[in-house]
Design a binder for these strands. Structure first.
Lengths: 147, 147
DNA sequence: GCTTTACCTCAAGTTAAGATGAGGTTTTAT
DNA sequence: ATAAAACCTCATCTTAACTTGAGGTAAAGC
């Protein structure tokens, strides 16, 4: 169990993910490994952190794809350090801020909106929180006129 | 276009969902229709509201299955009225409150957590917001000791 | 009356994020 | 030296929420 020479089983145990998940992440380019003489995967120790961050991000509702994107902005050869991770954290914090904001607006308008009788796809804040406006042609019509 | 006699195409246009989605929702028990002489679907006007509510709930991250559950608590034969929908709204508002809370805690701990060097699967708030504690055997090990 | 548009059913495809299993090799432990 | 545990690859399966397509009927417009 050398410092920079972790087996897949060990990594799995330490991070709580299955071996198959590690294979999967590798295939998706989220983590890396090299092979030993017998073709078995070996990992550097920082893979542990990486996986933890993946799991953390997923809890925030971030997709693997988008996590992958974010990782692309990280040092490629150098092992990422505190500062690198902290930067990630900031980015995700902002994303979270926006999510919270959206949800809060949504919550505050939900009652009036479902209750009022309109639920217009054009004006209802449930459909159209400003961060998710999809403008596409004539679009759907207002449902009722009570509003 | 009688008041309580909407065709699937009309409903699709009005709500902005595809015809195939309406078929799908019906199959899942989320909406209902009857058939005309030529075996084509006809809907009551309240299907519009129902679909809108489905879409709204989805935006809150609620699954179709759980929406279906919620709908089961609604009047079956009577067309649901304002009060019925408002009740739904309240339930979902509470759910949203919880989500917002979780995310807020998450955001507030994210920086310290990714930054600090621990990311412990046992003590890290990113892994273990109190609403998602999974206790299962020995579990994964702490990643680093810096914390 | 004929053509186009709208519908119908049923089967199969799609994406995300893995899980599962078969069949075979490497390591590790005794 | 041998058996058990850990790995390997590749293929197939899972769930959610739809979408697409094929092959055929009904309704609407001129």
């Amino acid at each position: 169990m050398e410092d920079a020479n972790l087996s897949v089983g060990y990594v799995a145990k330490r991070t709580g993910v299955k071996v198959s998940t590690l294979h999967f992440y590798e295939q998706k380019g989220l983590i890396r490994s090299w092979r030993n003489q017998g073709n078995q995967r070996r990992y550097k120790r920082d893979v542990l952190r990486r996986i933890s961050v993946i799991k953390a991000a997923q809890r925030l509702g971030i997709s693997l794809q988008s996590i992958h994107q974010t990782f692309l902005g990280m040092p490629n050869e150098r092992t990422p350090d505190k500062k690198d991770w902290a930067q990630l954290s900031q980015r995700w914090q902002q994303q979270l801020d926006q999510q919270i904001n959206s949800l809060t607006k949504l919550r505050d308008s939900l009652d009036g909106c479902i209750g009022c009788g309109c639920l217009s796809m054009q004006s209802c804040p449930i459909y159209n929180p400003e961060d998710a406006l999809e403008i596409e042609g004539p679009g759907p019509v207002i449902l009722d006129r009570k509003c």
